[in-house]
Design a protein around this nucleic acid. Structure first.
Lengths: 243, 243
DNA sequence: GTGTATAATTGGTCTAGACAACTATACCGA
DNA sequence: TCGGTATAGTTGTCTAGACCAATTATACAC
């Protein structure tokens, strides 16, 4: 591996080192539980300041790929936690990650005045319009759940039925300079309603998973509320928690 | 506020600045969406290097309390996301955070040979012993759920029925130098079983929330598996996701 | 007024050191 | 053999600068 650092690149040196370390971990140059070279060693190897190496390592520690032990060294963390099922993922991304083929059927797509609850979640004054989208979500052509999505019209005035078939998140990150930040979600179990049982082809005494998620841009401004109902017998919600 | 920085304290300067900024945000000295003083200003105010100020701010940016805009400044993020419902919390911490009084009743406390599934989750060879703890979890003296906990005996050989009444997490963080890292969890909905309905005082056609959580130390080693069943009518699982 | 060039300010990256705190090891003496 | 001690290597913290890139404020010309 002749990975070299290009000091004149517009890519920051610490990013390049970060990438190099990630690839070395992936290629098992540094194995799980083993130490990587010390910060001083790396700073000599790449001919950069130790602080620059530290910035690269700190990022990888924050993302859970490495961990430090004072006086001992820096080690490769167990990849079980790394990234696979963490983070904010759309239904489509989620299903693909599980090896299933996602599809959707749009039942409704319209502008409405939302309830006060939804308006409050989105930091909107009462009476302001939102897009209201209802979709059946399928995995391998079997219905998995129903999603009700609310998005402020003034955030995405040109949204239409075509665009929501692609990645909404990518759309939003492209439109604003900002990235999508965090989300807060509430998860409950309940019995299926009559309406839902029809769409999901369930018997009326089945349990379902209800998820309500509010997603925020990195400046803390909410851009989406999603209320979902998933079949309990086929959908498992998996997430990672960081302390 | 005459918050001063003690350069001779054993508490790092950046931690002190971090604390000062957090308190200033809390006290609305810097309001939501407003900018905090520039890094150069703060470094003069505290008479420290700008890099030290940056370390403090970087931590607050990573924890979502501030966000930066190049060429403009650093701003206070919306606190809705801040910390309240995030992170790995024990049932007790969780209930207290919701303003309820938690209590527990231990139904079983014993050493067993776990199933292969559990052993695998805990990185144990087949046949290795674990503590098996079954508890009824109450909030304001009403049963909220049942928890089945599995902990490798060799990790906590001196665990007993008294100790688990306190904070298990604090116990573990004290015992090992390591801190508790992340957790991976699976959440499902189902109908209550006959046995559970008895303990939770539920009718046999009630929905319940099933949560399985594997918790890891910061080096990626698992130390606990918890399988929980919560009443759907009174328990709502709330979490925060970071992208 | 309306642009436009320029300056000032901000966060982003980087350097070349320094000392502290902690860990492991080798060695020495009782 | 055991226990202390020096030593070297590690990460943790901090300094006092430097230049870059993006944004904003200012002054000036038209």
């Amino acid at each position: 591996m002749h990975t070299k650092i290009d000091k004149n690149s517009r890519i920051p040196i610490y990013s390049q080192i970060e990438e190099h370390l990630k690839q070395s971990i992936y290629a098992k140059v540094y194995k799980i539980g083993e130490s990587i070279p010390s910060e001083r060693e790396l700073s000599i190897q790449f001919d950069v300041s130790r602080m620059t190496v530290r910035q690269a390592i700190t990022n990888l520690v924050n993302s859970g790929q490495l961990y430090r032990e004072k006086g001992r060294g820096t080690y490769v963390a167990n990849p079980k936690l790394e990234q696979p099922m963490t983070g904010l993922r759309s239904f489509s991304e989620d299903m693909i990650a599980r090896g299933m083929k996602p599809s959707s059927k749009v039942l409704r797509f319209e502008k409405i005045i939302p309830t006060l609850d939804i308006a409050n979640d989105l930091f909107l004054e009462p009476g302001v319009e939102v897009f209201y989208i209802v979709r059946i979500r399928n995995a391998d052509n079997k219905p998995m759940g129903i999603e009700h999505t609310y998005i402020p019209v003034r955030l995405m005035p040109d949204l239409d039925e075509q665009k929501i078939l692609g990645s909404l998140y990518a759309l939003i990150e492209g439109k604003f300079q900002q990235k999508i930040g965090n989300a807060v979600q509430q998860i409950e179990a309940s019995l299926v309603t009559k309406d839902e049982s029809k769409h999901l082809k369930l018997s009326p005494t089945s349990a379902v998973l209800n998820i309500k998620r509010i997603s925020y841009l990195s400046d803390g401004f909410p851009f989406e509320v999603v209320e979902s109902t998933y079949r309990a017998d086929s959908y498992k919600f998996i997430s990672e928690i960081k302390r």
